[in-house]
Simulated assay, not measured.
Amino acid sequence: MLLHINTTSDWQMTARLSNGDQRSEYVSAAILAAQEYCRDNRLQFTDTRRRVLEILLEAELPLGAYAILSQLNDEGFGSQPPVAYRALDFLESNGFVHKVDRLAAYVACANPHQPHSPSFLICRNCGSVQEARITSPHRAVRAAARAGGFRIERESIEAVGICASCSSSGH
């Protein structure tokens, strides 16, 4: 299990999480910070929103809305798609998660509440996704948009290739 985190924010740990104890500490810290953020910004961090964020923080791979919904249903949160989509919309609009368009799936944000445009490195072999901090391509896209009078509403870069783990194992 590998979760790549590239940040120094208060609630993220710079670590490669390779065991359950590290993962559990990371999830607990992230949930606590999300609760504090919501409290400080007068946002409702409902049980469903909390659980969806936990599911994504615990996941080894990006998850689609229906995979999240299935887990929510198994835990008694409901089985209707709006249950998952409303929670995901809230979490995405408040910087807790990102949608990886290429996969139609979601990942927990590695840099929550830090201004950034997400960049994803997607392994075509194992399906892992790493959020990378890349600034130059984003600047170029924004400059081109300004020059063309285009207003960007959402921006992300998704690169597909082979992750280090798959490369070292010969895939």
Rank of each mutant, 00 (worst) to 15 (best):
N94W: 14
Y85T: 08
S128G: 08
L56D: 01
L61G: 07
Y85K: 09
N41S: 14
F96W: 07
A110N: 10
A65K: 13
D89R: 09
I122P: 00
A65Y: 12
N125S: 13
I122D: 02
D89N: 13
Y106W: 15
C126S: 11
D89V: 06
S79R: 12
G78P: 01
L69N: 06
L121C: 11
R86K: 12
C123M: 03
E75M: 05
R39G: 10
S79F: 09
P82A: 05
S79D: 14
L63F: 00
V100Q: 01
T46E: 08
P82S: 05
L91F: 09
R124E: 14
S93Q: 12
L69A: 10
I68L: 09
A87R: 05
Y37T: 04
N111A: 14
G95T: 02
A105H: 01
R42E: 15
A34R: 02
Q44S: 13
Q44P: 02
H116M: 10
L61R: 14
L56C: 03
C123Q: 03
Q114S: 13
F120A: 02
D40N: 15
V97F: 09
E60F: 04
A87Q: 08
G95Y: 08
A104K: 11
G78T: 00
R50G: 04
E54L: 02
Q35G: 09
E36M: 05
R50K: 14
P118W: 00
P62I: 03
L121I: 13
V97N: 01
D89C: 05
S119D: 13
P115G: 12
D101G: 09
N125D: 14
C38W: 10
A105W: 01
C126L: 08
A87D: 09
E60D: 13
F45R: 00
I68H: 02
K99E: 07
E92W: 05
A105N: 03
E54S: 05
H116G: 02
P115F: 15
N111V: 13
S119G: 07
Q80N: 09
L88T: 01
L63S: 04
C109R: 01
L69D: 01
R39V: 13
P118V: 01
L63P: 00
R42I: 09
P112F: 11
L63Q: 14
A84I: 08
L57P: 00
Q114C: 11
N73C: 10
L63H: 04
G76T: 04
D101H: 12
N73M: 07
L121G: 06
D47E: 13
A87G: 06
L69S: 09
F90Q: 06
L91C: 12
Q71Y: 00
A84E: 04
A59F: 03
P115L: 15
A67R: 14
V83A: 03
Y106A: 02
P81K: 07
I122H: 06
P82L: 05
D101V: 13
L63A: 12
